[in-house]
Structures are given as structure tokens and as C-alpha cells.
Nucleic acid binder design. Structure first.
Lengths: 356, 356
DNA sequence: TTGTACGCGTTATCAC
DNA sequence: GTGATAACGCGTACAA
């Protein structure tokens, strides 16, 4: 089977006895073309099966209607929701979305951003890889007036768009909540401290302790590499083996928190009575684990949508200088059973008989 | 700040006293250029900050090194792993990946595939929307010799590449497993029957019952709209209120199965003793729910990787006709506690005292 | 091994 | 309101 010839604006021009320029303008709703002509041309285009070549248009404009994304990995709940939000906003505006995964490696982030640059994207949305500490690879975009939006995991220094949540307040609230539940020794599962999100969550934790007259104890702050399930289990085991074990845990993500719940249950440690636990992100697993995990909900899709809109607005406004604009979104403390001591107390009173 | 001028092959040509064609060839490792020259040119390109313009190259070749994806939604575990697999394979081969979500609407799938076509993608990977029953929108690709790979949710008729799992066998095995656990009345949570995956899973279920001498009862086969958590809860409630309720459930996805577990627990129905449950997909929640959900694991990332490779191979081989090639991947039955009656029996013997 | 010349499909500019 | 022309950056047939 041979390949069908594609229809171009020249074919339309010949067919309708117009010049290619007129066709082009009509197709783009240029105001200088009469409504009638526009309709006639669009109808013919539809009928003849014309499809625009965005490559050609992009070459001509030195810009493709495309948003590039660089993230760690797609298959994590927060990330896939973020992308989903970006994609939806972008597509509504007629933009495509190119994704790339760094797998938390600086090297990959570097080559991915280069590849995205080569596609002449209209804007870049980045959630930094765990390893990244040098930001020079974003200059190529900024030098070309291409907006870069950092989302969630953002650099401290660089002037650019940023879309984040208030990690400090969230960490503070989560910890305060545990204190209100009567916890006196609250441990913290901390992420890599050179990434803003983890650093700020920890700061919130520390300040909440201090402001409520609780000591900040080094042995209760555990630094994780990846906040994985496995790491969570091991760390919980160590903590609970302490002479004076914690009675509460604030974990910087849900995976490690869920792992703590499961470990505690396996050891006969009552959650939340003996150990109250709160996580971060509101991943699907957090409402499935038993007892359900209290957590901080992260408006992932919304963050994606806003990031995309920053780029779309930027293109429209044609900003001529590097600007710094930070958008801070609200989080929500979600109290479930893993930290709700009042409810647990009520329950245990009601059912004296064991419930299996 | 003004925008920096971009370096083109012309700039390199001028700088090195070569013609643009030599530069172009050297950059593409054309064999007619001496190794030394290639090195010299590549070095200079690197040094001068040259970045290829893939738009121009794509226009010239009438093909961009890009793989397009059309799926229902990104933020579902199976889909995000699928995309992750595609992205990884594509990027290793120097291809970009454009994603689009149909949100299970035919209308969106239609406009998304058009947009992808306009980008002159090298190939399209599709998991059909729930609504799609007409496949004409894929002809534009096939007519142009652009490979279309259907993955997981595939059309019955169309000749094209397909990457699937053996849903029939998986459904059969899952059901057989429940039978082996002693279940006599096994219910099935079925998905929309016009999508191959759900139809085949159900067939496997039906045949397993028949071949083991169990009756196939209409009242035990429940057709779901979306296999959601909420639907799962309601349906389980109805089933368990039957005069003769089921003692096993094979659910076509994990979400509904987990929901069944949680509902059963809330009603004091013992899982797996009174009700054995098995799901499909091996989503993260399935290993977190208590008792952990038995399920069928779906090699999502692998399916993505293979789909991408089909396209890359196709481009290389330059197939000149529409071919039909189906790849069938193995699934794995994962037995956890929700269906493991032997283990449950053992446990209840051991611990006479309540363990809360 | 390298250079010349052209065209891919579109759109911006200038002219009428 | 419409047309002619050039240019975007690259790859390749043909020539040398």
C-alpha cells in the first residue's frame, strides 16, 4: 500500500483559487480575512482532509506549541496527578505535552532538558531530581526567553516561576496535630535535606515541638534516602527498639508512614494508642491501610494546572525579562484513624469483646 | 535581557570553513565523513553551544522523532507504569514522548489523535477509551505508514500491532484458584464487555466454573460501569445480602476488589474464610489492604517498553504494508491473604487468643 | 570526501 | 482583503 499524499495549504490554494497566504490566514482566523472566506476555506480544508503541519509552523515561529516536563518518575501518585493536571490545561489551550523522567539522576535531567530544548518547547515544567544541585542546564531556556516553572521540588536560588505548597506550615500542622493527640515523643521521617520540600517539612516539625515546649531530640529525627517502604520498616524497627521509643511519627511521605503502621501492627504496637502516625501526600494507599493513615493532602493536579497556565500566560504576555513569581498552594490536614486517639478510645470502650 | 542568537549549522560551517552539508553529515555520523572531521565538527558544535533544531529536521524528513500516546488517564497505577516504560525505551533511542488523555471519552480520543498526527509523530501507542467503538481516526496514521500500537485495551478487528496480556487465561487461573480454595459460589465483578480485556476475563471466569462443574449464575455476575471503589462497595453489599451469598469474588480490577474487602470487614464477614477475594492489576493498594489482596500482576512497564520498541523497529525496517502482529505477555497470579484459606486456617489455630 | 542547490510547509512582511 | 516573496534550519540528490 502506497502512502497517501498529504494536503498542504498550497493544495487548498489551488483548489479554491486563493493564494497560500490567504489560506494560512484564514486557517488562523486572521482578522483581515472576511468571515465568509474563512468559512469557505475551513470547510474545504475539512473536506479535503487538510491537516496542519505543526513542524513547519514551529520552524517558522521558532517555537512549537508544546510544554516540556522533567520529573523524577511518572509512576508515582503525586507525579502522575501532576502531569494529568498539566496535560489537561495544556491540551485545552491547544498545546502538546512532552514528558521526560530523570529517575532522580542529575545526568538524566541534564540530557532530558537538552532534548526538550531541541524540540523548541514553549515552556518547561520541572520537579527537580533528587541529585540536582547545579542549575545551569536551565539557563539555555531562560536565555531564550522560554519560561521555566519549578514545581514542588524547586531550587532555592534561581529566579523563575515556582509553584509550591507551604511545606513548613504543613509540617508544623501535622506535628501540632500529633501533640494535640497527646504525643510527647514525636519522631520524624525526614527526606534529603537539600530538597526544599523535605527541609521545610522538618523545620515545621522542629518549630512545632519547640513552640509546644517539647524537646527536639536528634535520635528521633531519621534521615531517609528515598523514603521507601523498606526504609520505613527498618527505621521504625530501630525507633521502637529504643529504650525510650517514640509515641508519634510524622513522616515526610505516605509510603514510609504506611510501612510504619504495618510494622507496628505486626509487633502488636497499637496505632494510634501507642504510636500515632501521620504521613504526607494523601496517596491512595493512605486511605486503604488499616488503621487509615492521617496525612497532608497535596493538590497535585491543581499544581500541574497552575504550572501549565504560567507558561501559557507567559507566551501570551511575552514577558521580556526574567521574573520570579512564586505560587503557594494550600494543603489540607486529613485526620484519619492512625492519629485519632479520641476516636480510638471511644471504639475500645464500645467493643469490650475482641473483634478479630 | 535580549534573546541570545541560536547557533545553526551555518554558523558552524562558517566558523570551520566547511559547507553546511558537511556539518550536517558529520553531526549525523554519516559514513562518508572522515572520523577526524566528524570529531572536529562535533567538538566545535559542543563548544559553540550548537543545539539541533528538531523541528527543522522533522519538517525535512516529514517525521519527528516522537512517539504519541493516547490513553484514558495518566494518574492510574497501570497507566503511569505503562507510560513510564514507553518513555524509558523511547528516550534511550532518542525519541520524545507526547502524552494525551482521553478521559475515556471518544470525542477526546478523536481530537487528541488529530493533534498527535499534526505533530508528525513516528508512531502512536493507544489504549482505547471506554467509549470508543469506531476506529476510523486511526486510518490517518495507517494511510501514512505510521505504526499504531494498541496496548491492553485493543480493538477486535483492526489490523495493527497489538500488545496485550492473556486476559482469558488470567481470568481462568484466578477463578480456578478460588475454586481450589474451596469456593462454590464465585461472583465476578465484570467491566464493560465491549472492551476486550473485560470480556476475556469474564470468559475465563465462566469457563473455569464450567470445567470444574460449577454452575454459572447470572445473579453472581455483576457488570460495572467503571469498577470504582464506590461501585465495588455497593455491589458487594447487594451480593452479600442475597439469600444465598457468594463465598468468593473475582474482580476485574483491584480497586473494586479492595473495596469488597473493606466492606466485608466492616460487616464482620471473614476474608478469606467466608469470602475469598481476588483482584486484577497488582496496584499498590492491593498489598497494603488487610488482608492483602490476591491479584493478577500485569506487566505494565514491560508492555510499554515493548510497544515503544514496535514503533522503533517499524521505523528502522520501514515496513511497506499494514501488518498485524500481536504480542501476548504473561501474567502472574499473586496469592496473598485475601484468598489463602489454608494460611488463614493455620493462623486461627495458632492464635486462640484474640490478637487485635 | 566535500560542496551546491533545493525543498520540506508554514507565516511574516511588504505591496497592492 | 488579498497576493508575492522570503525565510525558518536542516538533509539530500547530484555534482565535483
Amino acid at each position: 500500500m502506497s502512502i497517501k499524499k498529504e494536503i498542504t495549504i498550497y493544495d487548498l490554494a489551488k483548489e479554491l483559487n486563493y493564494s497560500p497566504s490567504t489560506i494560512s490566514r484564514a486557517l488562523n482566523d486572521h482578522k483581515s480575512i472576511s468571515k465568509k472566506t474563512v468559512q469557505r476555506i475551513k470547510n474545504a480544508a475539512e473536506e479535503m482532509g487538510y491537516r496542519p503541519n505543526t513542524l513547519a509552523a514551529g520552524l517558522r515561529n521558532n517555537k512549537s506549541k508544546t510544554i516540556g516536563i522533567s520529573i523524577s518518575r511518572i509512576n508515582r501518585p503525586f507525579m502522575s496527578s501532576l502531569i494529568s493536571g498539566i496535560e489537561e490545561a495544556a491540551r485545552n489551550a491547544g498545546y502538546n505535552v512532552i514528558i521526560s523522567q530523570s529517575d532522580d539522576k542529575y545526568k538524566n535531567e541534564l540530557s532530558n532538558t537538552k532534548a526538550l530544548y531541541d524540540s523548541r518547547i514553549s515552556g518547561l515544567i520541572v520537579s527537580l531530581s533528587m541529585e540536582t544541585s547545579d542549575y545551569k542546564h536551565f539557563n539555555q531556556f531562560i536565555d531564550q526567553g522560554i519560561p521555566v516553572v519549578f514545581v514542588d521540588r524547586v531550587p532555592a536560588s534561581l529566579n523563575s516561576y515556582k509553584v509550591v505548597i507551604d511545606n513548613y506550615s504543613a509540617g508544623y500542622s501535622a506535628t501540632k496535630h500529633l501533640i494535640e493527640q497527646g504525643c510527647k515523643r514525636i519522631a520524624h521521617f525526614a527526606g534529603a535535606q537539600h530538597r526544599n520540600v523535605y527541609e521545610e517539612r522538618k523545620k515545621g516539625y522542629v518549630d512545632a515541638l519547640k513552640e509546644h515546649g517539647l524537646p527536639v531530640e536528634k535520635e528521633l529525627i531519621k534521615y531517609f534516602k528515598t523514603l521507601s517502604f523498606e526504609e520505613g520498616r527498618k527505621t521504625t524497627a530501630k525507633l521502637m527498639a529504643l529504650p525510650n521509643p517514640p509515641d508519634g511519627i510524622f513522616s515526610a511521605n505516605d509510603t514510609a508512614a504506611v510501612s510504619a503502621i504495618i510494622y507496628a501492627k505486626s509487633m502488636g504496637i497499637k496505632v494510634p494508642e501507642d504510636l500515632a502516625i501521620i504521613g504526607f501526600n494523601d496517596d491512595p494507599i493512605s486511605s486503604i491501610v488499616d488503621p487509615a493513615l492521617s496525612t497532608v493532602s497535596h493538590p497535585a493536579a491543581k499544581m500541574g494546572e497552575i504550572s501549565a497556565k504560567r507558561i501559557l500566560e507567559h507566551s501570551r504576555a511575552n514577558y521580556d525579562k526574567t521574573i520570579s513569581e512564586v505560587t503557594i498552594l494550600n494543603t489540607e490536614l486529613i485526620i484519619r484513624d492512625s492519629s485519632n486517639r479520641a476516636k480510638a478510645l471511644l471504639k475500645s470502650k464500645k467493643s469490650r469483646q475482641p473483634k478479630t
